[in-house]
Nucleic acid binder design. Sequence first.
DNA 1: TAGATTGTTAATCGATTAACAATC
DNA 2: TAGATTGTTAATCGATTAACAATC
Lengths: 261, 261
Amino acid sequence: MSTASAVSTSSTARTTGPGLATASVRDLPPATVGRLPVYLRALQVLADQGVVTTSSRALAAIAGVGSAQLRKDLSYLGSHGTKGVGYDVAHLCRQVTVVLGLTSRRRVVIIGVGHLGHALANYTGFVGPDFAVVGLVDADPAVVGTTVAGLRVDPAERLEDVVAGTGATIAVIATPPEVAQEVCDRAVAAGVSGVLCFAPRALRVPDDVDLRTVDLGSELQILAFHDRRKQGVRELGAPEPGVQQRGVEAQGMTRRGVLAP
Amino acid sequence: MSTASAVSTSSTARTTGPGLATASVRDLPPATVGRLPVYLRALQVLADQGVVTTSSRALAAIAGVGSAQLRKDLSYLGSHGTKGVGYDVAHLCRQVTVVLGLTSRRRVVIIGVGHLGHALANYTGFVGPDFAVVGLVDADPAVVGTTVAGLRVDPAERLEDVVAGTGATIAVIATPPEVAQEVCDRAVAAGVSGVLCFAPRALRVPDDVDLRTVDLGSELQILAFHDRRKQGVRELGAPEPGVQQRGVEAQGMTRRGVLAP
DNA sequence: TAGATTGTTAATCGATTAACAATC
DNA sequence: TAGATTGTTAATCGATTAACAATC
């Protein structure tokens, strides 16, 4: 139960010394950072079930990754397991939470309150307990002034005021692609440090701003690519044997049969 | 303007011979496949502007990648450029369209018509002209029977009928995580070949089914990770000089100043 | 002690980047 | 011809995986 070994956020550490390495957290491989939320959710599932201790194998199965990858990822956070025993669920949960910076609530402004922005504002799976939507802005006069998810929608001109006034550090862009770069620039100038963009447009941000893009249309197109391949194969009537196991250790790999004819 | 050199979808090709290589399209690196939609959009932007010919440098700038990467990616599709000249926009556009399998409209079923599913059904940036939402199902009796995006919402029990009846090949899962695996299994058994999952849960699918997961909550958490790092730095008052150019060649890299104090 | 499981090493794999010969 | 730009090679980089010594 000791929080003593928690990685200190604002410690002096720069050494990659022997003990706990805050420095290493700064150098976490991007691929590892991307999986930490998945691990956190898997840990929360176990915690909810009252599980106290788990193994890399069991946790990895829930997270949908290989156990070697899980151990490697966690090793970047320091040594939080016990050889021969496994990981303490509550302890590891705390570690990952701290590393992800989920100790204080981040404030989020959503720019563009169309169908998608509207849904994001209301979607608890999106914001969860770690984030608070503190502002909504839109350019459409018909939308401005309405209440969405308990918040009054502000006009697009007030974007800077909303960001600065709320102290939001994250901007979610759900505008049409034509204006995405402009509102992004303005949000950054007003002080956000991270941008999550849903507009299908490549954005440019300064190097000290973090940008992530979720491109829903692209996701479908990528599925179409594979769909076409399979249909091509079906047309040719080829056998297609290659059964490549994904990096997941079979645990309860039951059910799934082959496609019905 | 000749469509003669277009890669034939259902050709016999299996050779990696000298000419056009349909075979190679089957072996496209996943990272390349993931960027093709971005290139396609960049090409459409140019086409809309009436641009006839472009260079890897100009196209890459629009797409937000490096020109070397663009050329390498395109080289997997075969040789479609002209040395010393560049690429024919219309021709390349067609090539990428064909490779992505966007020659026929894919049918999509959305499972779960909450805020997110509702937004996806209505979001044209999501479906675009290449996809058609042909079915909606939900477990909530209050939602079943309502009309969303011009479609009647069917009850969850009818999932199999809807998939089979419409011939949908792609399922979009926008349900709560608890039921995501179940509806996924059922959609796959009913015949879909690709699944796009928005539920924050690791799903298991057979090897011949393509799964992509969009985890909106994780995206925010990843931003929080970087946000925390920066705030830690700000607290320490460190200078943080490292200006790492992203793999984008400066072209019109204007505007963006530094954060206001 | 014997069995289990971590943390880490080393090997492998895939993706990115820079450079340049080929060639329009 | 001189200049421009592709397609490709080779080098680099990062991520994944398997294996195992350390150790509970």
